[in-house]
């Protein structure tokens, strides 16, 4: 019970007590129906807050941010050590043996995606083509875990991308305010994210792998299109973040 004692719990207790008091006071003593109704609405709100108090994550957002920073920091060190300077290709789960979307960081910039036609082995260093330079590192990103959250849902097809992204980013992670997806004539997707609450230090890794938000978007887009995708551009202003995704 102790872990549920958060802001919503105290709000629920206050609303339930005030609601009971209002109902008793104004119904029994004053016979005022509108004020008794206000008390009843407080009771309903109190019940809702009590339900939400039991729904908050068991670990604090700070703990989650700490774990994310640690894992991203380790990948950053690995990429710097290997001298990788090519943007990541986000693979759908159908092209990985782990069963979840992952990011492939190729060693050479002239990657030929025609070799990406069968699941890559579940290893850190993978060979994806017949030539010696067709080597890269395969890593899990925040997007890999997010796409797994949608495992039970059908996210195939373009129409499902916006609702899937909204479901993950707004509903499950509560990380942004809203998501809008549009498609250009050349097939690239532009995802406009408003009200982002994910902010952190700008590590060098983000240039090659994309920010955690872009990583989530790319993984879900790859899963929905069932094709390898790349983050083409990520622009941010005060109101929203625009992420452009293209088929690799």
């Amino acid at each position: 019970m102790h872990r549920y004692k958060n802001t919503y719990f105290y709000l629920a207790v206050a609303l339930l007590c005030a609601g009971v008091l209002f109902c008793l006071l104004f119904y029994l003593l004053n016979r005022s129906i509108p004020l008794t109704a206000v008390g009843a609405s407080m009771l309903i709100l109190g019940l809702v807050c009590l339900a939400l108090a039991r729904s908050l994550p068991r670990i604090s957002p700070e703990t989650g941010a700490m774990l994310l920073d640690t894992s991203m920091g380790n990948i950053n060190l690995l990429i710097e050590e290997l001298g990788l300077r090519v943007k990541a290709i986000y693979l759908p789960s159908s092209l990985t043996s782990s069963g979840k979307p992952q990011a492939l960081l190729p060693l050479s910039s002239d990657i030929d995606t025609k070799w990406l036609d069968r699941p890559l082995p579940q290893r850190l260093i993978v060979k994806y083509g017949p030539n010696n330079e067709n080597v890269g590192i395969l890593v899990s990103t925040p997007g890999s875990v997010s796409a797994v959250l949608l495992a039970a849902e059908d996210i195939s097809g373009m129409d499902a991308i916006e609702s899937s992204l909204t479901h993950v980013l707004v509903g499950l992670l509560d990380a942004v305010g809203g998501v809008r997806v549009s498609q250009s004539n050349d097939g690239d997707l532009t995802i406009r994210i408003s009200g982002s609450r994910l902010d952190g230090e700008n590590v060098a890794l983000y240039e090659w792998l994309g920010t955690p938000l872009a990583s989530i978007v790319a993984s879900i887009a790859a899963e929905a299109m069932d094709k390898p995708v790349r983050i083409l551009e990520e622009t941010q202003n005060k109101k929203h973040i625009d992420i452009r995704i293209g088929v690799a």
């Binding site: 809702v48 339900a51 939400l52 479901h167 509903g171």
Partner: peptide, 15 residues
């Protein structure tokens, strides 16, 4: 509010 967290939805079912 269909995009609420599944855990929140489960608890709200009782309400």
């Amino acid at each position: 509010f269909i995009y609420l967290n599944p855990r929140a939805k489960r608890n709200l079912i009782w309400v």
